[in-house]
Amino acid sequence: MELSLVSLSKQFGQKSVLKNLSFTATGGKAMGLLGRNGAGKTTTIRIIMNIFPPDEGDVLLDGKPLRHSGVRIGYMPEEKGFYPKIKIKDQLLYIAELRGVSRQQSKKVIQDWLERLDLSEYWDKKLETLSKGNQQKIQLAVALIADPDIVILDEPFSGLDPVNAQLLKEIVTEQVNAGKIVLFSSHQMNYVETFCDDVALLHEGQIKLNGSIREIKRRYPRHRISLSLAGDNRLEARSGENVRDYMERLMHQPNDLSRLIDRLDVVRGQCHLILAHESNREAVLEQLVAVHAPVEQFSVVEPTLEDIFVEQTGEIQPSGQSV
């Protein structure tokens, strides 16, 4: 199965929210829709969910326009909520019935899911009595209750503690392994990186990057170098300097290093170099050898998804937002 978004555009009033957006999510692979707040993730998902139509473009399933009556879609909206004053079982039975699960079947399915999510004791409780994290797990149950072919989760990790986030990851992985199309949006790169195969990076309503994470990382310039020198003690014995002073002195000497290296960071004796170009790698190493630097390790660092995200969206992602 393949869910394709083709040239979607959407305007709200004067504001253009999506501009000619296209990507494809494939069954059996987790697809992460990344972007900063306001990048257009939720709008994209709402168009897929047919909450409102796009101004232009199409949503295709296996090449044909997506018909909601013909396919089951499990959806967890960004704004998570349900009836606070109604018992969990009644709400879940209701939504299951709306999604076409028979009454006899749905009770069994719901009990299984609550057990899986470690929520069995809340079967007969009102939603408002649950903690926020548990309410969110209920949302996951709601999304998966009807055994959907397509699973769409909008910011599923927000508000979950690490243990629950792990549980969510396991469940999503199961869904992926069952061959379903799993699409979720997030701005938390660490979660996305650990189990997404494909990503689409949205910025201001446009796709900035799209493809498998491995491909994207491989395509990405390999210009980050991790460099370990023999520790401070040995350097000090030789020249009375620590690693930082030593490296800075090298950079200021009349050699090529300052031209080849863009940026130097030293964190706890470990050097991080950003090269002006990835082809400078050999030259840098040669220079270091030439000055008899006590190199212990010299390796290329793969960019993390977060590095790519920050670089693509131009601004620093505020840290501490990940939960």
């Binding site: 909450i51 959806y75 909206p77 704004e79 998570k80 909520g81 349900f82 009836y83 709306l98 709601v142």
Partner: peptide, 8 residues
């Protein structure tokens, strides 16, 4: 916020 679930 039950609406978004219902409407879909």
């Amino acid at each position: 916020r039950a609406m978004e679930l219902l409407i879909t």
